[in-house]
Amino acid sequence: MQKLVLVGGGHSHAIALRQFGLHPVPDVEITLISEAENTPYSGLLPGHVAGFYSYEECHIDLRSLCEFAKAELRIDRAIGLDLARHQVLCEAGEVEFDLVSLDIGSTPMMPAGAAGIGAKPIAQFLKWWNQFDGKSVAIVGGGTGGVELALNMQAKMPELKIHLFQRDRELLPSHNPWVRQQFQKILTQRGIQLHVGQAVERATDCDATVWVTHASATPWVKQSGLAVDAQGFVLVNEFLQSVSHPEVFAAGDIATMMHYDRPKAGVFAVRQGKPLFHNLRAKLENRVLKPYRPQKRYLSLIGTGDKVAVASYGGFGWRAPWVWWVKDFIDRSFMNQFKRMI
């Protein structure tokens, strides 16, 4: 009996588990290690912050998913890997594996000793947000995540004074000029104070600080001895397999694909789910692995907090209520696949 251990309940692992339920592999024990029984879907979270979606609508029930996949759900926190002994080290003990996959996401990069709350881990952020009753907040990071979060926080708390800090001289630097100009206009019209070209170590004039900065990796990944990139993310090949340890796979934010420079975005984690399943299954069955090649361009749908959204694709952009309807349909369709399990 082979032991497959999935560490983390991210998008790729959720999709892979559903595939294991639909296409069982004999003589394999599957264990999912997760810190919580529910995992958030990033596409619906800004709308949840605004109050458009309930908690249940934007979270996947991992216990039901594991039952469908005939997998064991272990509620625990992974703190390391012992690659020599083939063990995942957890707070409550060790979990042995023959094959292991990591989908543990990332956290915002914060200066040493910085105060405030990170937008990830999402569960911690939502707990904080549900209890927050301040009058002002500083959001550090003017990329897609920071801009969308600012607008949706304001939608929920219209009287909230929001300061948005961006180290670069322009917001949303990964998007085209039209999209950047649209959001500059929207944020200004709604009274969100913009501070561009300013690096922040701490914000002392606000009731709270939320960090939505560049992604950082948990230190134990590098400490385990896995090959990592300069930021500490697992280096994987076109099969989503560690370049240093073939018994280790990784997907989502925690993985960096060799030869493919792609942002840490949820769209890639979703797209990696089925290729990850295929290659995990192929490895277990000693079959040939199948390469995954991420797309160069991808459609980004960014909510503006008023059931309108902006679509960004390469050099093109649109802003309209119908874009929100498309985004809502795509996001709900993704979640519905986990509600139709039998």
Rank of each mutant, 00 (worst) to 15 (best):
Y298A: 07
C66I: 01
E94D: 15
A282S: 06
V288P: 09
V179Q: 01
P275E: 13
K274D: 09
S216P: 11
I75M: 02
R340V: 11
F329W: 13
P40M: 02
H11Y: 15
R202N: 14
Y53L: 05
F338Y: 15
M341W: 12
Q2P: 12
V243M: 05
Y292M: 03
Y260N: 13
L172F: 03
V248S: 07
P275A: 02
P294H: 07
Y313W: 06
Q19F: 10
Q166N: 14
V88M: 12
A203C: 07
A71M: 00
A230D: 10
D27T: 04
G315D: 11
V5K: 00
F132G: 13
F268L: 01
W220I: 04
V49D: 01
K264S: 13
V28H: 04
D306Q: 08
S333Q: 14
Y292T: 07
V234S: 00
G118H: 04
L149I: 01
N336C: 06
Q272V: 08
N38G: 00
P46I: 00
H48E: 08
M258D: 15
Q241S: 00
S42G: 10
E94M: 08
E57H: 06
D331S: 10
G305H: 10
Q184L: 11
V210R: 02
N336Y: 12
N176V: 14
E29T: 12
R271I: 04
L44S: 02
M341D: 00
Y53M: 01
Y53S: 05
L240Y: 03
G142R: 15
K307M: 06
V95D: 09
G303T: 07
E96N: 04
M1H: 07
I330K: 09
N237C: 06
E57I: 00
A150D: 15
V243G: 10
A50H: 06
F268S: 01
I30L: 02
L99P: 08
D306S: 00
M341S: 03
Q193T: 02
D306A: 09
L299W: 07
S300P: 12
I30N: 08
Q182D: 05
V179D: 06
Y41P: 03
F329E: 12
P275R: 01
E72R: 02
L73G: 06
F97Y: 03
L301G: 02
Q181P: 11
P111A: 03
G314E: 03
V28F: 03
S101R: 05
H245I: 05
L226W: 14
Q19N: 15
I117V: 14
H23S: 10
K161M: 10
Q184S: 06
G134A: 04
D76S: 11
A155I: 02
C58G: 15
A114S: 05
A69Q: 00
W318Y: 11
W128N: 04
A208H: 14
I122P: 03
V49Y: 09
F125L: 08
A282M: 01
H259M: 08
L6F: 13
V28W: 09
R74A: 14
F239G: 07
R319Y: 13
G273P: 04
N336S: 15
Y55P: 01
T188L: 08
E57C: 06
G113S: 00
Q223W: 11
Y55E: 12
G116M: 08
S64W: 10
A251E: 04
